[in-house]
């Protein structure tokens, strides 16, 4: 190992696309099932990832990160919990809330996450990766029923049309629809993507 030295600023490593062949590496069993099974507060967040022509992106991968319902932001290990006999990923332990989820889109560009309401904030943070996307994108799914969203500084700074791309729509009780449009077109607005500096 390189000897430990006093930390000094380092030039970052560039991003490269996730490509099309991450299938055995990144998706894992139960990746979208962040909520413990059967939890009464479970909400569904789902939608499609779409390109600039409005076509589904069938080889995207969506990651979610959020606080626990009590507002804690430490997360917890165990999203990729393993079977000690076979080494296979067997899913979370059904008790721990890890706060992290990861789902590949299907052939129709669709993804589904099942989680619990984030504590203290109205949004679930999302990262999107895809073939053709040289650097992943961050966005947020603001839950439409999470209370008044008017106080949120990010939302308040956007035009109504842009703001709407960050807010889920109701797709039934406790079901939130959130499409991610990587690029705007004639008939649809591009999702707002975020830069954290």
């Amino acid at each position: 190992m390189t000897p430990t030295t006093t930390p000094a600023p380092q030039p970052p490593t560039p991003s490269q696309t996730v490509g099309p062949f991450y299938g055995y590496a990144l998706p894992f069993t139960g990746g979208g099932d962040i909520a413990p099974p059967g939890h009464p507060d479970t909400l569904t967040l789902h939608g499609r990832v779409l390109d600039g022509a409005g076509q589904p992106v069938p080889d995207a991968i969506v990651e979610a990160w959020q606080p626990a319902p009590d507002g804690s932001r430490t997360g917890a290990p165990g999203s990729l919990r393993r079977d000690p006999v076979t080494g296979a990923v067997i899913g979370r332990d059904t008790v721990t809330f890890t706060g992290f989820g990861r789902v590949p889109t299907d052939a129709d560009g669709h993804y589904t996450l099942r989680t619990l309401p984030p504590g203290g904030v109205a949004y679930i943070s999302l990262a999107v990766f895809a073939r053709g996307l040289l650097h992943h994108l961050h966005t947020r799914a603001y839950l439409h029923d999470a209370g008044p969203l008017g106080d949120d500084a990010l939302l308040a700074g956007l035009s109504p049309v842009r703001r709407a791309t960050l807010i889920t729509t109701s797709d039934g009780p406790r079901v939130h629809r959130f499409d991610i449009r990587l690029q705007g077109g004639d008939e649809h607005e591009e999702t707002v993507f975020l830069d954290f500096g």
Binding site: A53, L134, V192, L194
Partner: peptide
């Protein structure tokens, strides 16, 4: 077709 055309929001 897979990149945003609008600037990212800081």
């Amino acid at each position: 077709l897979r990149h945003p055309k609008q600037p990212l929001v800081a």
